[in-house]
Nucleic acid binder design. Sequence first.
DNA 1: GTGAAAGCGCTAACAG
DNA 2: CTGTTAGCGCTTTCAC
Lengths: 333, 333
Amino acid sequence: MVKIQEVAKLAGVSLTTVSHVINHRDRVSPALRAKVEEAIDKLGYVPNRQAQSLRTGRTNVIAIMIPDICAPYYTEMVRAMQTALVDDGVDTLIYNTDVPGGHSEDHGHTYLKQIKTKGVDGLIVADAALHRIQHELAEVKIPTVFVGNLPSRSVDSIEQDGFASAYRMGEYLVSKGHKRIAHVTGPSFFNMSMLRQAGFERALKDGGVAMEDDLRYEGSFLPPSGYEAVDWLVERHGDDLPSAIFFASSRMARAALAGFADRGISVPGDIAVASYDIYEELADLRPRLTTIGVSPSDLGSGAIELLNERIAGYDGTPRQVVLPATLEIHETA
Amino acid sequence: MVKIQEVAKLAGVSLTTVSHVINHRDRVSPALRAKVEEAIDKLGYVPNRQAQSLRTGRTNVIAIMIPDICAPYYTEMVRAMQTALVDDGVDTLIYNTDVPGGHSEDHGHTYLKQIKTKGVDGLIVADAALHRIQHELAEVKIPTVFVGNLPSRSVDSIEQDGFASAYRMGEYLVSKGHKRIAHVTGPSFFNMSMLRQAGFERALKDGGVAMEDDLRYEGSFLPPSGYEAVDWLVERHGDDLPSAIFFASSRMARAALAGFADRGISVPGDIAVASYDIYEELADLRPRLTTIGVSPSDLGSGAIELLNERIAGYDGTPRQVVLPATLEIHETA
DNA sequence: GTGAAAGCGCTAACAG
DNA sequence: CTGTTAGCGCTTTCAC
C-alpha cells in the first residue's frame, strides 16, 4: 500500500501539501498541485479510508435495513436511494433482517448493534417489523430515518397514509358495485396492517357494505400467504365466491393470481382482485393488478433527503413526512 | 464516544486487558473478564471499527457489484451471499452499476476505484458487463470472485455453462416437435449471450431444425426488449407464427408473456415459450415458464465459498467453477 | 502557501 | 496473565 508520505517524497513536498491537494485543492499553488498529482498517478496512490475516517469521523457510508432484499418493493426503494447518493460518493451497506436463521426482529437488533460500531454516517430503517425497537432507534446517536409508520415519532420518518389509501381502495370497490368483498390483511402485529385494515373496512362501512368476519383472512404480506388465502377462500366460499377480494400487499395478490389461475378461477370474471402497493415490476403482470400505494422510489428518495439534512447538521425534532398514494386502476378490478 | 481507556479505568485494568477480552477472551482470567465486561456494559462501549480496521487491516466488509438490484435474479444471489456471511458478521456493500446517469461500464470503473479505497476484505463482481474490465479486476489486489463467464480467467470465477444449457433447451424444444423456432438473444457484446446463442442454435442444427435468420432478434436481457420482441414477432411473422420462441433471459420472457397476453396470443396454445434463467420468483408466474438455468442462490453461496478461501489466504491460480443447470419444464413449453 | 507535530481509537509485540 | 509502548495512515491546527 502506497501512502501519503511516499507521494510527498516523490513530489518533493511535505505530506501536508499532499493532503491539501487531496482535500482542499485551492490551498495549494497550481504548480505544486500538478507535481503532486503526477506523483499520485505515478504511484497509483489511493487514500486509505479507514485512516481518513478515523481522523474525520466520517465514513461516507450509510446503512440501510430492509426486511427482504428479494421483494421488488424494497429493491426499488434501495435503488432510488442509491441513485440519490451516487453523486455524493456515499456507499450503502445493506442489511437484510429477513436473512435465514432467526427472527427478523432479532436480526434487526443484532444488526443495529453491528451498525453502531461501523461508524456509518447515517441509517435508514425500512422495516416495519422494527417499529418495536423504536426506542433503540432513538438511542442510536447517528442520523436515522425510518421508512414507515412510527407511532413514537422518535426519529424522522417518511410513510404513506395506510388508512386513507386503503379507504380509497374500499371506496373504489364499493363504487364498482361490489357488495361482498373478501379481505386478506397483513399480520395483526404490524401497525401498518391495522391501519390498512381499518381504512379499508371503514370505507366499506361508509359505503353501506358489510364486512363479514368470515371473509377476512390474516396474511403475512408475503407471497405464500396470498396463495394460501386462495385455498382458504375456495374451501370456505367456493360455492359462493365474493365478487371481489382485497389484498393488503401486492406480493400476496400476485401469488393469489397464480392461485386463482391454478384453480381455473378467472380474474376479474369470477372475482375482482385489488391490492395495496405499487411498484414498477407489477407492470409485467397479466392480468394487471389494480392497486393503490406510494411508489417506493419516492419513499426512498424522500428518505435520503431527510437523512442528508440530518447528516448536514439539522437538529430539530423528528419530522414525519406522509406521501400521497396513487390509485392505479387496471384489469383485475 | 466512549473509548477503551474509559472502560479500562472503570474496570481498574490496563487497556490491553480490555482489548484482550474483546479479541482473545481466553487470555484473560474469568474474574477480570467479568469486571471488564461489566464496565463495557455500564458504559455502553462499542469498539470503533475504523480504528480496529486501521490497525488490523481487516474491515469485515465485502463489496458486491451487480448490474441491477431490481432484478430478482441478482437479489436472490445477494441474499444467498448475505446468508452465507451473516454468521461471520461480514457486511455487504452493494454497488449497482446500473444506477442512472452513465453507462454501466463507467460506473463499474468508478466503483472499482471507490472500492479500492474502502479497504474491503473481498470483492464479488456479478456483472457480465464488466468482463471488459477484467484486466482492472486482476490488478485489484483484494480477493475477488467473478460470477459469470470470464474468458481471461484472471480471477476466480463461478458460472454456468451457457452453451450446454442452451443446447439442452434447444434439444428439448426439438424433441417436442417444434420445427420453426424464434430466438431472442442477449446483446451480442456479451460473451454469455454468444455462448447461449451458439448452444441453442447448435442444438437445433443437430436436431435437423433450421435456424432462420429472420427468426432471430437481438434483445438486451431486460424486460422492455422482451415486450418489443413480441411486437417484432407479430409485425414480422404475425400471419405465420413460429411454433415456439426461446428467450435468452427470463426477464425478457416474462415481459413477453405480458406482450402475448396483450395481443391475445395464447401461450402455449398459439406459441410455446421457453427461456434461460431460473429463480424462485418465477414460481408465481402464470402460465409458468419452462426455463433452464442455475439457481442464483447456488451461484451466490458458491462465490462466497471461493472468496472466503481467498480471504483465508489461499493463493493458487484462478479457479473456474462451473455449476450444472436444471431444466424446469412447466406450462409454457 | 507550506511544513512540523499531535493524535483519532485501537491492536499486538514485547517484557514483566 | 497483565501492562507499556509503538504505530496503522491520515487530517489539521499552528507556526513560519
